[in-house]
């Protein structure tokens, strides 16, 4: 673990390039340890793929008697126990893979040399973990995509990916909370609303959560649709 300043009001804590599964408990545990300190000058704690970005107010940091180097040293020395994913934060998200929803299914299947059904089966069988929320409000980066489904990003991004689209690229799966431009391959769509600024909490998912996809047909999708 390395602790380095990112400008004068943030610190980037990097956990090295260990395999994803090994990194997650350390990152979640580190965030919990920082939160437990309740430093009044820290206002945001943002998990990344292999890192945590801590945003702070340098004026309040100084008022609390710290200097940036002394506080970075305290962060590096933080005794954080790895956290195991909690079963309480396992989300079962309905997904519809049918035509009109899984916009890139056939193309992805062709690229992978698999049948469409085989892609769906593998995608729905996996257990995913939320690595981070980024790109857009409530957009989860999900680790756990089976190796057999890993493809590069689309050659040209779509200017509008429909809200709820579940998409894959490289070793990740993501879900578009609202209509956004995007370059990932859309394999299905969930009817669940992932982000609502007027809801508490606004984002259904947070880093460290687990996700499993439950296939539904078109009628099931429409019945559940809250997007």
């Amino acid at each position: 673990m390395t602790v380095d300043p990112l400008g004068d009001s943030a610190v980037l804590v990097e956990f090295g390039a260990a395999p994803e599964a090994a990194l997650r408990p350390a990152i979640v545990g580190f965030c919990a340890a920082v939160q437990a300190r309740a430093w009044p000058f820290v206002h945001d704690l943002v998990p990344g793929v292999q890192s945590v970005c801590i945003h702070y107010d340098p004026v309040r940091l100084a008022a609390s008697g710290w200097t940036a180097p002394s506080w970075c040293a305290a962060l590096a020395a933080l005794d954080a126990a790895p956290a195991t994913p909690s079963a309480a934060r396992l989300h079962q998200l309905p997904i519809c893979y049918e035509a009109g929803f899984g916009l890139d299914l056939e193309r992805v299947a062709g690229q992978l040399g698999l049948s469409v059904d085989a892609v769906i089966e593998r995608h729905a069988a996996a257990l995913y973990q939320v690595v981070m929320i980024g790109f857009a409000p409530g957009f989860p980066y999900l680790a756990g995509l089976p190796q057999a489904l890993q493809v590069p990003r689309r050659a040209s991004p779509r200017s509008a990916v429909p809200a709820g689209s579940v998409a894959i690229a490289l070793d990740l799966c993501g879900i578009y909370p609202v209509q956004l431009p995007g370059g990932w391959h859309v394999v299905g769509r969930t009817p669940v609303r992932l982000f609502d600024p007027n809801r508490d909490p606004p984002s259904l998912l947070r880093a460290g959560d687990q996700v499993r996809f439950t296939p539904v047909d078109r009628r099931g999708f429409e019945a559940l649709c809250t997007v």
Partner: peptide, 27 residues
């Protein structure tokens, strides 16, 4: 992908720096 903040200067492949302001993406 990692957290970014105001003032971060990113360098995309085209070589033209991007300097993040208040409405920056979080990562």
């Amino acid at each position: 992908s990692a957290g970014v903040c105001r003032g971060v200067m990113q360098l995309p492949p085209d070589g033209n720096p991007i300097l993040l302001l208040a409405d920056h993406q979080t990562t």
